[in-house]
Amino acid sequence: MLRYIIRRLLWVVLVLVVIVAITYSIFFLLPGGGSDAIANRFAGKQPNPEIVAEVKQQFGLDKPIYVQFYIFTRNLFLGDQYGWPGLGKSFVLRAPLKQVLVERMWVTIQLAVGAAVVWLLVGIPIGILSALRPRSIWDRAAMTFALIGISMPVFFIGPLALYVFVYKWHILPGSGYSPIGEDGLWQWFNHFILPWCVLALLYAAFYARLSRANLLDVMGEDYMRTARAKGLNERQVIVKHGLRSSLTPLVTVFGLDLAGLLAGAVITETVFNLPGLGQYAVRSVFSLDLYAILDVTIIAAFFVTLANLVVDIVYAFLDPRVRYT
């Protein structure tokens, strides 16, 4: 198992290098990108060759692409003058990216993890209760909720929620991020509760449907019949035999969903003005901030590959049929 994990970690490193290479290629090859585009953007209205050359040199864009790529990759893994990992300096902020990204990542983590807690606590119980009473009124109501939840995009429900809870009823403070350390737990919670719920809605709906379908499938399994034939009571049958195997597949989905959100929940962050990674990714693309784009891409790739690894390991513990060597 340890060897397997080490091998997979090396794989993560390789994936990151490939991602950097691809991002570099896209950035430099697609129209609207490349060293010239960046240099021109920051060289002002009179991008005469001298200023462009100066800007390129300052931004490290004067070297051939493969050298830039090498330097960036080396810094990423070995660190740069701003520490480890070497994430470079933002062209736009003229500041090291590490601190900016760490701050933003922290916001995104709070958003994603909080939302995950909400959707797990809401979605899975709804799904289970529905599966236990299929075709009942409750089941139909729950699945209607799920259908609505799945078809409600954040960019619709988010502004609506803000309008209703903040401006109409005045029960919650406005959008924005309120760090625990600054304004206290209550303010922090008040600012996060709407984004959590709005972001969680879609996932809760999806998880409700998924856990319902899984549990219904499992209820038809032979081993469930065995469990009943053994004389276990219904609670033991459902909890120990049914849920264990019906919720295990959710681990995979959950891992990837969470990883995807950790890479930035762009729309939610924008609607609720949370200074997270997703918001930053979009801004970086628009401002041609090369290293910021590379960094957020790498962070996203890192979260997803890491989540894959974690999911695989956790899965091996949950499902004994799966073993890695």
Binding site: P159, V271, N273
Partner: peptide, 16 residues
Amino acid sequence: IKINSNVDDSFNALEN
């Protein structure tokens, strides 16, 4: 001057 990525939200706040 506060950064708010949600322009609609800013105008809501203005009206309020």
